[in-house]
């Protein structure tokens, strides 16, 4: 399949290689697509780009997100109540890429995070093709272990989209090596045993584990996520990793901004402002 844009594995990996070459570490905010409406999502993506996010994880919400804690479950419910689906997410990314009267085109790297049934329902090839054609860079499926990902990886290889895989503290050494070899873009390390949204303590065991992940990943970048809420967590997470992924705390913050809007039409601007201040706050953790 031909790609309309330069996005995908090659682009994402080049960006992350540049991050390392510059001696920098980065932020990868997670947002739930469609929470507060799709216009809010677009405005927030643009704000995150302006505020210096290195990658955005864009969640395509599922009715039964078993890997997520209460905050992201609630965000998924809000978004689904507005009817968000795969096509909408692709459309938001397409609008982000093409630019309009409000903003110029953006090449902010985007990884779509979701659950297997939403892609399998449409057909893996067709779903991945749609995301690739819209200009997404990668895809990460929370309930699709490597062993079940043969078809996903084929579809990604054909479209250039990066398949990302997760590792967890329970992952053994052999499996860690396999996942590091299979993951494109970056390797996603779950910081803690548990679902999203609970604070991770970056104690010695956690740092040992993240050190092992970084070693297994070698030249491949590593992102650490689950339970990173403030600048201190960011700086601890980045001791061994390239990217700190911040989800539930940001999603809650954005939701409060949307909920405070006196009129729905104001929600995108308020959420965008909240995204900017939140990212600036987190950035303090980048230069301790």
């Amino acid at each position: 399949m031909t790609r309309p844009s330069a996005h995908g594995t090659v682009f994402l990996e080049a960006r992350l290689a540049q991050l390392r070459a510059d001696g920098r570490r980065g932020l990868a905010p997670y947002i739930t697509a469609g929470d507060g409406g799709l216009d809010t999502t677009l405005a927030v993506l643009r704000a995150l780009d302006d505020a210096g996010a290195d990658v955005v994880e864009l969640g395509l919400p599922f009715s039964d997100p078993v890997a997520d804690g209460p905050q992201l479950q609630a965000a998924a419910e809000r978004s689904l109540a507005l009817g968000t689906n795969l096509r909408d997410v692709a459309e938001v990314v397409r609008r982000l890429r093409s630019g309009d009267d409000d903003a110029p085109p953006s090449d902010l790297p985007i990884v779509v995070m979701t659950y297997a049934n939403l892609l399998s329902r449409r057909g893996w090839g067709s779903a991945i093709g749609l995301l690739a054609a819209a200009g997404c860079d990668g895809v990460l499926v929370a309930d699709l272990p490597l062993e079940e990902a043969v078809v996903l990886r084929i579809a990604c290889a054909e479209t250039g989209l990066a398949p990302l895989f997760l590792v967890a503290p329970t992952t053994g050494a052999d499996r860690l090596a396999q996942l590091a070899a299979a993951s494109r873009g970056f390797l996603y390390a779950i910081g803690r045993v548990g679902t999203t949204g609970v604070t991770t303590r970056f104690d010695e065991d956690t740092q040992d584990y993240l050190g092992r992940v970084a070693e297994a990943a070698g030249a491949r970048a590593v992102g650490v996520g689950f339970g990173i809420a403030g600048p201190d967590d960011v700086s601890a997470a980045l001791r061994h990793a390239d990217l700190a992924i911040v989800g539930s705390a940001l999603v809650e913050h954005l939701h409060r901004a949307v909920a405070s809007a006196p009129h729905p039409s104001r929600a995108p601007a308020l959420a965008a402002r909240a995204a900017t201040t939140f990212l600036e706050h987190l950035s303090e953790g980048l230069n301790p």
Binding site: E148, A168, R175, L179, I190
Partner: peptide, 20 residues
Amino acid sequence: AHGRFGAFGGCFAPETLVPI
């Protein structure tokens, strides 16, 4: 080998649980 019954079954679990 896969927990597969024909085209059905499998192990679609979050990574944390897979080794378990």
